[in-house]
Each structure stands twice: as C-alpha cells, then as structure tokens.
C-alpha cells in the first residue's frame, strides 16, 4: 500500500508514491538517486545520513518519507553553491578533515549548521555539537579545526549571504 508525498528536494518539487516504511534516506538515495546522503547505521546514531529538513539538520534514516509531505529537504547535492559550504569544503581539505569520506556529507551538513547557528562556538562547543556524527577514520581533530577555522574566518569577513540559493 503506497502513499502519495509531495515535497521539495534541493529546491525542486518532487511527487512520489511511497511505502509507509520507506525512510527518507532510502527515498533520496534509491528513488531520487541523490547518493551524497550516506547510511551508516539506520538507527539514528552515526549521523552519516544527516540532511536539512526545513532548514534544520535531521537524520534521514529515522524520518519516514511519508512524514516529509509538504516539507523542504536539502541534501549535500543541494548545497554545492552554498557560500558557507564553499568555505567548509576548503577548510576540510586544508585541515585534513576526511579520510575515507563516508561520514563527510553528514559532517558537512552538521558543520554548516554549527557555523550558522553558533558563531561564537569554541572548540569544546564544536565537539559537543558534533556528538551526533561519528567518524571512524579521522579522530575528529581535523574536522574540529576546519569548523573552527571557518568560524574564525567569518568573524573577520562575515558578509557572505547565508541563505542557500
């Protein structure tokens, strides 16, 4: 038994018929072929599946696609031109914040949220905010430094538009 859903994904209207048990991660990955959103646990712990749901980070694996009817979903693919993301990508490379790259999309979406929401975050706060994203490769040092460096850069140069296009 399938249900209709209409939602916005990366700024585009999407309509689909989905089974009630289909989660949002499988929906964007398998139905929309947006595979930047990764799946690491499917039970809401690892954060690899983090997307923006109505602008706030959410775990796609524990949100059902049917429950997203009428909502706005943004995956990493939809943030490629986002100015904060542009800065974060450069910082992630400069600080060696990724190795295998599997946790990276979820990390970037959480990182962007930290940058926009907590301009004064110090290292300890960044670490607390990252508590919902697991990385098995990096030991987090580079990720924390990358986020801190973007926060710092924005203090001296705060003028970028913060809304995604």
């Amino acid at each position: 038994m399938k249900h209709p859903v209409r939602l916005q994904v990366n700024g585009r209207a999407v309509e689909a018929q989905v089974e009630p048990r289909l989660n949002l991660a499988d929906f964007v990955r398998d139905h929309l072929h947006l595979t930047a959103t990764h799946v690491g646990c499917e039970h809401g712990v690892c954060g690899a599946c983090t997307v923006l749901l109505d602008g706030a980070p959410a775990r796609a694996c524990i949100n059902f696609a049917v429950r997203c009817d009428g909502r706005d979903v943004r995956t990493l693919e939809g943030l490629s031109c986002d100015p904060v993301m542009v800065r974060l990508r450069a910082a992630f490379t400069a600080e060696h914040a990724l190795q295998c790259g599997y946790c990276t999309p979820g990390m970037l979406i959480t990182a962007r949220d930290i940058v926009l929401r907590l301009p004064d975050a110090d290292e300890a706060r960044i670490r607390v905010e990252l508590a919902g994203n697991l990385c098995r490769c990096t030991g987090y040092a580079g990720i924390v430094r990358a986020i801190a460096s973007v926060l710092e850069a924005r203090l001296s140069e705060p003028s970028e538009p913060s809304e995604p296009r």
Binding site: R29, A36, H38, T93, H96, L98, P105
Partner: peptide
Amino acid sequence: LPRKEDARFLLGEGEFVGDIH
C-alpha cells in the same frame, strides 16, 4: 600536500558500492 581525493567526497560525488544502481 592537500589531498587529491577530497574534492569528490566533499561534493558528495564519491562512489561507494551502495551508491551504484
């Protein structure tokens, strides 16, 4: 040297087995 492999992962363009249809 900064890593050559980073760019694709940062854009979500890495290709893991689960991404292949």
